[in-house]
Design a protein around this nucleic acid. Structure first.
Lengths: 345, 345
DNA sequence: TTGAAAGCGCTAACAA
DNA sequence: TTGTTAGCGCTTTCAA
C-alpha cells in the first residue's frame, strides 16, 4: 500500500472516488471501521468515549457516508421509487408530495419516474427502477399484465398500486372505485333535477369507466342518451372550452356536464359564462380531482375529491413497514371518494 | 461453497439479496462475469457468439443488473438529484418534469427532494442527497451560505443552481433577474396609463426583490407609493381574493396590481369580478409564472413567463455533460423572461 | 476479444 | 462493547 506512512498526503488508490471514507474516519478516531459505523448509525451501541471520538473525526473530515456502499452491503437502499404519468397539472402531485415528505421523515429518498402516459416508457422506467433495487415502488395506477409486471413480481420488491381497484393487484393496493364515482356523480346531478347530460373526457381508461357507469345510471333514470365528447388532454382548460362549444352545437338543451378533470370543468364554466349561460342556473358543471383552488373560483366548482394526501401517506407507511420487515400483509384498501357540492351544480 | 453441485436448488449465501447476479448469467452462458458485463454494457466489444449466449442467459434468468453495485464499482451513479421547495401548484413543476424526462432519455434517474420552503429541511435533504453520491444536483433556487453549501462544494458533485442570478454560484447557474422583472412589470403597467399601484406577494425573498424594483420604478415615474399586501401562500387563489379585499379597503383607487404568482392574480381577478369591477377596464392585474391555463381563463391573464422547460433541459444537459466528463465549463446563463400581455391588463 | 484479480465503501456474521 | 473477516455485485486494471 503506497503512502501509508504519510497520512497528510495519503493519495487514494486510483480506483477511489476521492471522498472521505469510513476508513479515514476510523483511522482518525483510532477505532475499527465497524466501530465508527456503529457510532454513526447506532450510537446507543457504543461507549460515550468512542462516540465522542468518532463524531469529532466526522466533523473534522467532513465525512458523508456513502449510502450506495451501505445499501449494497446491507441489501437495503432506503430508496422508494414512484412512477406517475405526469406531475404537471396532474391529479397525482398531492400524492407524490405527501409520499415524498413522509418518506423523507422516515429516512428514505424518493426516485421519481414519469411515464408520460406511455406504456413503453413505463416499461422502460420500471426496468430501470428495478435495477436500482429500491426498497419499495409506488405506482400511480394499476400495472397491466406484461413484461414489466412480470419482472416486478419476480423482483420481490414491495409494490403499492393505487388510484383504482382490481382483484389481482401485484401486491398492495390503495384505490377507489371509478364505477362508483360515475354513479355518484350521476345521482348528484339527477338529484338536482337535471334532464339532459353530457360528458367531457380525455382518453384515459379510468375516466372511460367513470363515464360508462355515469351513462348507465342516467339511462336507468329513463333519460335520454348521454352525449360524450372526447378531448385530447385533461390537463388543459382550453379542451374544456372547446368541448362545451361542441356540446352546445350538438345538444343545446344540455343542462348537466360531468368532466374527467377540474380543469376541463373550469373550461366548460368559462366558455359558458363567456356565452352568457348561467352556471348553475342553466347548467350544472362537475369536475374530478378537486384542484386546490376549485373552492375559490366563481362559481365554486363541484367536484369529486380523492384524498391524494392520504394515499401518499398510507403508501409510504406500507412500503416502509414492509421494507423494515414489520409486516408481511398485503393490504387492499378502498379509500373512497367524496362528492364535493359547491356552487357550480 | 454449499449447494454448488445442484444449480436448481442452489441457495445463495446468507448475505445475498437472492436476486439473479451477473455471476449467474455468466455461469449459464459459460463465460467469465466480466465478459457477461461487457456483452450487456458494451455489446460492440464482444464476439457475436458470446453476445448471443449472454443475452439468452439474461432472458432465461430474468436478470436485471444491480446498478447500485455498478455505481459503487465505477463511482458513477447515473442519478441526478433535484431539490425543490414544493411540487404542488408550484412554478417549478415544469422544470422538474422536463429535467426528469431529459435525464431518463439519457439513461439517468431523478431523485426528488422537497424542502417545503424550510432551510433546515433543505440542509438535511442535501446531506442525505450527498450521501447517495448523485452524479449531479439541481437546485431550484440559490443555496445560501451555510453548512449545506460548504458540504456541497466540498463534495465535488456538479451543481446547477437556478431561478435567480448571483455573482457567487456554487458551480453552474441557469437563472434570470428578478429585479429586471419588477422593472419590466412596472413599465408594462405604466405604459397602460395606470396611476395607482399595488403588490400582492407571499413571503418569498425573490418575490420581494421583484417587488422592490417594481416599487422603485413606480416611484421613478413620480407616482404615489405602491401599496403592498403580504399573504401567507402564493399557491392559493384564496389569498389573492383576500388581498384584493384589503387593497380595496385601503386604497380604493388602485388600478393596477402585480402579484407574485398567477394563482394570486386569479384570486384578485375573481374577487374583482365578484364585486362588479371590470378587469382590465377599471383594474389591470398581472401574475407571475404563466400557469398552463392562464391564457384560457376569462379574462386571459397577463403574466411574466419563465421558460421552465428550457431550464430543465439545459440543466439536464449541463449535468450529464459534466458527469460524462465532456466539459469542465461552469456556464452561467441568464435565460431571461417574457412579459406576456393578455386581456387582464 | 477474453479473463483473473483486486477492489469500490460499507455492513452482516461471528468471535472475543 | 469492540474487532476480525468476509462478503454485497459489480467494474477497473492489467495480462494473455
Amino acid at each position: 500500500m503506497p503512502n501509508e506512512t504519510n497520512p497528510a498526503a495519503a493519495k487514494k488508490s486510483r480506483r477511489s472516488s476521492g471522498a472521505m471514507t469510513l476508513q479515514d474516519v476510523a483511522k482518525l478516531a483510532g477505532v475499527a471501521p465497524i466501530t465508527a459505523s456503529r457510532a454513526i448509525n447506532t450510537p446507543a451501541s457504543v461507549s460515550a468515549e468512542v462516540l465522542h471520538k468518532v463524531l469529532a473525526a466526522v466533523e473534522k473530515t467532513g465525512y458523508v457516508p456513502n449510502r450506495m456502499a451501505g445499501s449494497l452491503a446491507s441489501s437495503r437502499s432506503r430508496m422508494i421509487a414512484a412512477v406517475v404519468p405526469s406531475t404537471v397539472m396532474s391529479v397525482f402531485v398531492e400524492t407524490v408530495e405527501t409520499l415524498n415528505n413522509t418518506l423523507f421523515d422516515a429516512g428514505y429518498q424518493l426516485m421519481l419516474g414519469q411515464s408520460s402516459y406511455s406504456v413503453e416508457r413505463e416499461e422502460a422506467l420500471l426496468e430501470a427502477v428495478i435495477g436500482r433495487r429500491p426498497d419499495g415502488i409506488f405506482l400511480a395506477g394499476i400495472l397491466q399484465p406484461g413484461r414489466a409486471r412480470t419482472r416486478l413480481m419476480a423482483s420481490g420488491i414491495p409494490v403499492v398500486e393505487s388510484w383504482d381497484l382490481t382483484q389481482t393487484p401485484i401486491d398492495m393496493l390503495i384505490g377507489f372505485s371509478h364505477l362508483a364515482i360515475g354513479r355518484a356523480a350521476a345521482k348528484h346531478l339527477l338529484d338536482k333535477g337535471r334532464k339532459r347530460f353530457a360528458l367531457v373526457l380525455a382518453g384515459d381508461e379510468r375516466a372511460a369507466r367513470r363515464a360508462s357507469s355515469f351513462t348507465e345510471a342516467v339511462a336507468a333514470a329513463g333519460l335520454e342518451d348521454v352525449f360524450t365528447v372526447n378531448v385530447g388532454d385533461s390537463r388543459t382548460l382550453k379542451s374544456g372550452r372547446n368541448a362545451f362549444i361542441k356540446i352546445l352545437t350538438q345538444i343545446p338543451k344540455t343542462d348537466a356536464i360531468f368532466c374527467s378533470s377540474d380543469l376541463l370543468a373550469m373550461g366548460v364554466v368559462t366558455e359558458a359564462k363567456a356565452r352568457g349561460i348561467n352556471v348553475p342556473k342553466d347548467l350544472s358543471v362537475m369536475g374530478f380531482g378537486d384542484v386546490p383552488f376549485g373552492a375559490d373560483i366563481e362559481p365554486a366548482l363541484s367536484t369529486v375529491r380523492i384524498n391524494g394526501g392520504d394515499i401518499g401517506r398510507m403508501a409510504a407507511r406500507y412500503l416502509i413497514d414492509r421494507a423494515e420487515g414489520k409486516t408481511v400483509e398485503k393490504p387492499i384498501v378502498d379509500i373512497g371518494f367524496s362528492i364535493i357540492e359547491r356552487a357550480s351544480t
